[in-house]
Design a protein around this nucleic acid. Structure first.
Lengths: 198, 198
DNA sequence: GTCTATACTCCGATAGAC
DNA sequence: GTCTATCGGAGTATAGAC
């Protein structure tokens, strides 16, 4: 902003993260590379290394941002779903599908292999907050124990991630399905996985 | 077998496909390359090109084998599940998880991008047979229409594929979960998605 | 802080010897 | 049918100029 004394950007770091989301949305994790991110940002392939020591640290920053934004999207969807705990958790599955369809940054990115070894407090905080939010939504559905809540969250994630993966791989291509339609199906399916309530 | 006049194999083509499964199981689709398959088979990186014109044709042959074997595994699991249509379809989800955990060859491999463009009658027959088997299992659960059966198959695949993806990405690592445990959860979840019956 | 240039590795694919 | 050798392309990462 105020300090735009460089060649191209006032904040290349932020621009690189933003470009990463674009790449992930278009080509998936497979299409993510420091070189491609640099190209998309209009800088040389060496420039990113002034802001991130290596590829995994850039991906870790993307992961932190994704976890934060996804948590916001899920919390917002749950609130719009009203007060019924089952409806709120199911809505979270829909928010997951829509977020990943738009950004390409699902759990396979947020918890990508190799990221666990990286020291990145921001990422750890945001991923933990995301999981806590999901766990709270599951616990509210009158499950009997913490273990059951964890199992329910995992089931909900499996459904959401499964639909998302198939959608990203064009498995529903013949149907001309939209992300919103797939999200709606993930909501329905998640609703069926929640015991007892209504 | 009888014609082992070459350097290493009597049937390098089959050995390459077998090696491909090993690579997929260990490193996923990301770790699949003609060079790596050749290394694992103990031949030079040029040898595979005598049996497959390019990378995608090798992958297509792997896809055909995977579709055939997965269909067999699913049909077998359904038969062992008895006569209840809902239990049979749910068992198919478990078979999917176990097969992909063992081989790495899930729908993301069987229907991998780029394969659709390849002319490979074997692959087309086996993938079609696989989908027909799943559709038959879904139709038997007293669904109201063909569209509903398709939707049910897609939901079951989403659940199975979701659990499988998370398992492959070590998402359940802290729990020390086994493939059989994850498969059992996929069976339970699928069972909940099936309407009406019992 | 970004550039150009470069070294290294890996992969896909081909040419030609045997 | 398999080998060695090679080319071209893409990616990670570093060195040094500006």
């Amino acid at each position: 902003m105020s300090a735009n004394r460089g060649y191209h950007h006032g904040d290349l770091r932020a621009a690189l993260i933003e470009a990463s989301f674009g790449l992930l949305a278009e080509n998936g994790l497979h299409g993510f590379s420091v070189a491609a991110v640099a190209r998309r940002s209009g800088v040389s392939s060496a420039a990113p290394y002034r802001h991130f020591p290596d590829r995994d640290h850039l991906l870790s920053a993307v992961s932190a941002t994704a976890a934060q934004d996804m948590r916001t999207a899920i919390a917002s969807a749950a609130d719009q779903a009203g007060s019924d705990p089952a409806a709120r958790l199911a809505a979270a599955a829909g928010a997951y599908v829509r977020y990943v369809a738009a950004t390409g940054a699902g759990f396979h990115v947020i918890f990508a292999a190799g990221l666990y070894a990286i020291e990145d407090d921001s990422r750890r905080e945001h991923t933990r907050a995301l999981m806590d939010t999901l766990l709270d939504l599951a616990t509210a559905t009158a499950v009997g124990s913490h273990t059951e809540a964890v199992r329910l969250v995992e089931a909900m994630i499996a459904v959401a991630h499964g639909y998302t993966s198939l959608f990203a791989d064009d498995f529903f291509a013949r149907n001309n399905s939209t992300a919103d339609e797939i999200a709606a199906r993930a909501v329905e399916a998640t609703r069926l996985l929640i015991p007892a309530g209504t």
